[in-house]
């Protein structure tokens, strides 16, 4: 806060005329790096998500009983900044008392899952135990866990993984590297924490979703 106004991105650049930390000092929309040109990503570009086999998040995980493989997305939460404030009592009250796993009506029906049932969301990397939020706004074949839930708040032990305390959504996601993340040393294409580095594709993964058999805290 300065003079009663909250900080907003780029205020310095605009008000104090500080050049952007880029090759040209301006904002870049077009990326003229060789690797970006080679991958056809010099402008914002839609690329379809790779198939589950290519990601390889479900190579070892056994599917047993009523379970289903779903594409899991982990977008930013509605009221917490990553894990900060996630355990805020007010906001837990104003949501579902946890960060649930959102499922489509069709998939939930197939899995015999009703709204607010406990579910396990797991793959080769880890497991997250949560309640289900069944919703018509979720497409079939997709589930959503907002990031980042904390396992310190009301998370029961995982039944598919030997009655141990499960993690948050980061336990089943991992960073997927794309070749263009590896370029660097060229203007703004230089590693800097939280500025330039591997980014969001870890938010797109594949999981098995299953109703929880027992709820043990």
């Amino acid at each position: 806060m300065t003079d009663g106004r909250a900080y907003a991105a780029y205020t310095y650049n605009v008000e104090r005329l500080v050049p952007w930390r880029t090759l040209t000092g301006r904002q870049h929309f077009y990326l003229d790096h060789e690797l970006y040109l080679a991958y056809g990503e010099y402008l914002p570009t839609y690329k379809p998500s790779p198939r589950p086999e290519a990601y390889g998040d479900l190579r070892e995980t056994l599917k047993s009983g009523e379970a289903m493989a779903l594409n899991c997305l982990t977008p930013h939460g509605k009221w917490h900044i990553h894990s900060t404030y996630m355990e805020n009592h007010r906001m837990l009250t104003l949501s579902r008392g946890c960060e649930p796993c959102w499922l489509s009506e069709a998939d939930a029906a197939k899995l015999g899952i009703q709204d607010n049932d406990w579910v396990e969301v797991y793959n080769d990397h880890g497991v997250y135990c949560a309640r289900a939020a069944v919703s018509s706004r979720i497409p079939r074949g997709v589930c959503i866990v907002y990031h980042v839930p904390e396992r310190t708040v009301g998370i029961p032990k995982s039944q598919v993984r030997g009655n141990r305390r499960a993690g948050g959504h980061n336990s089943f996601t991992r960073i997927h590297l794309k070749p263009n993340y590896l370029c660097g040393g060229y203007g703004q294409f230089s590693y800097h924490f939280n500025y330039w580095g591997p980014i969001a594709p870890q938010r797109d993964t594949h999981v098995i979703v299953k109703k929880m058999t027992k709820v043990i805290f």
């Binding site: 009250t93 104003l94 949501s95 008392g97 959102w102 939020a133 069944v134 919703s135 706004r137 805290f217």
Partner: peptide, 23 residues
């Protein structure tokens, strides 16, 4: 006492539980 949270003041937020609430 420990409870099973089944309802809240904004339970059907963003169409959560649409089969039971929104519909």
């Amino acid at each position: 006492k420990p409870i099973d949270v089944k309802m809240g003041p904004n339970w059907d937020d963003d169409l959560g539980g649409s089969p039971d609430y929104a519909r």
